[in-house]
């Protein structure tokens, strides 16, 4: 089977991804210290780092939204609405152990598989907005505490709840990078931008 080398992740996309990874992990490490799970930097330093990185992350998010809209890349995350997600799920649950082919081929126009589309869409329209909103409410707690006494508990608990889901996301996400053509091909693509993608099957007869 022949492949061709394709630029699959744009420069901005890769910078965005890795900065986001750096920010989320930093927020995670400092956030759980603020949550009281352990002592590492000291509470004051942890809060300071957390707040600075939070603002940096928000700026990154603004740029990323702009990029997704202007480039049309947002279409990559639109669910297909059919049973393809089940097919993809069944592949990870069973087929992958038998050496089956990936059910959906990665193309330049559809670089995310159906499960990824849904997961990342959920990340973008649910987890991140919830974390940013509760984070800003947490940060500016004193400005609204009179309107909702005791509200901080809800804000803090939802924020921490989201953080736990992000830890779970991170574990699965990092593991799933190993399910590409080779264990490192997905990570390599996110670093270099290029991936070797199978030639489309309908083109094969022409080359024979």
């Amino acid at each position: 089977m022949s492949t061709h080398r394709v630029k699959i992740y744009a420069g901005f996309e890769r910078l965005w991804h890795w900065l986001q990874a750096l920010f989320i992990i930093t927020l995670m490490v400092t956030g759980f210290e603020i949550h009281g799970s352990y002592s590492l930097f000291g509470y004051e330093t942890a809060v300071r780092i957390h707040n600075i990185v939070a603002w940096a992350f928000i700026i990154l998010i603004v740029f990323a939204i702009f990029w997704h809209i202007t480039t049309g890349a947002w279409r990559q995350y639109m669910p297909t609405g059919d049973r393809s997600i089940v097919t993809q799920g069944r592949y990870y649950a069973f087929g992958i152990f038998k050496g089956e082919e990936h059910p959906y081929r990665k193309t330049e126009l559809a670089k995310l598989n159906p499960l990824q589309k849904t997961t990342y869409l959920g990340f973008k329209i649910l987890i991140v907005p919830v974390m940013v909103t509760t984070g800003l409410l947490y940060m500016f707690y004193n400005s609204w505490s009179d309107l909702w006494p005791g509200g901080l508990a809800w804000v803090a608990i939802i924020h921490a709840f989201g953080a736990f889901f992000l830890v779970i996301f991170l574990v699965v996400h990092v593991y799933m990078t190993s399910t590409g053509e080779t264990p490192l091909s997905n990570v390599t693509a996110m670093v270099t931008g290029y991936e070797d993608i199978e030639d489309a099957p309908e083109e094969e007869p022409a080359t024979v």
Binding site: H35, G150, V171
Partner: peptide, 25 residues
């Protein structure tokens, strides 16, 4: 609610989910 002091009541459940995820992967 005092950040860092409170809010840890369900932490065991959430860390349990994280651990379960690790085991699964």
């Amino acid at each position: 609610y005092l950040p860092g002091r409170d809010g840890g009541a369900l932490d065991w459940l959430m860390w349990g989910l994280v651990a379960l995820t690790l085991v699964v992967v």
